[in-house]
Amino acid sequence: MSLSHFDHYAPATLEEVFSLLQSKGPGARVMAGGTDLLLKIRHGALKPKYIIGLKNIRGLKTISFDASAGLTIGATALLAEVARHPDIVKHYPTIAQAARGTANPQIRNMGTVIGNLCNASPAADNAPTLLAMDAQIRIRGPEGERVLPLDQFFKGPGVTALVPLEIVTAVHVPAPPPNTGTAYLSLSARGKMDCTAVGVATMVTMTGKTCAGVRLFVGACGPVPLRAPKAEDILRGQELTEEVVEKAGTQASAESRPISDMRASGDYRTEMVAVLTRRVLREAHHRALAC
């Protein structure tokens, strides 16, 4: 099957992007790496008349880090760049790990973290960690910028909070509080290099022996990556003993709403949410104490 015909634009400024979006109407799509978009076109799921490439826009590729302001990943920063960026590897190791665990080297050299988020697959490898780390998404439209917590960005499979003419320019991750640890684990049928069948990410902040703060997100077990607030409640203010971690796993499992599909059965996913939740909690706890 061949690609449908479309015109390709490679503007150099955001202003040009918005004027193109405005003049071309709903037949236009923006593209970063194109690793999801071109596949959808190839399979006939999308038939855009115009593709507006973002890779020529100055500054959109920037990855910047500041110890107090935190981390900003630009819209066209590649998965491969995020995976090996020294500041990310050092201060946000789980974000680097999730980027490194996405697809294969060829895709990571074309695709972007933001593209992975905007594709809004419930199984997106980069979403759970960024959600657990309380990331914010920066959205630009012709009218200006708005900032949205990432946990309000996903609306359903393939659906985001973006309205027509808007694009995501960056994701911002605050500097984690002291004594904080993160972890992300995923499972799939093939082992390495595969689409995630279930994934869990967490960020744990300790005060002494007590868990002062925790965020826990489950991927591929609902229409969007899901938060497990009741499991978090079990952990918050507690010592993270085996018993508490065990209970939180069971609770996270109860809070997930997986379907059965060809990647795994709903029952297996439910069971694995508990297992992975316990494992990421232990790992994040361990890392928090090691800070």
Partner: peptide, 27 residues
């Protein structure tokens, strides 16, 4: 361990390498 055709009423559902789980060199 991983390869199989997922079928429903005679129809193969996993028709690409994403969902037909052939091991890669890394596995």
């Amino acid at each position: 361990l991983s390869e199989q055709f997922v079928m429903e009423g005679g129809k193969t559902l996993n028709t690409n390498f994403l969902d037909y789980k052939m091991p890669s060199s890394m596995d």
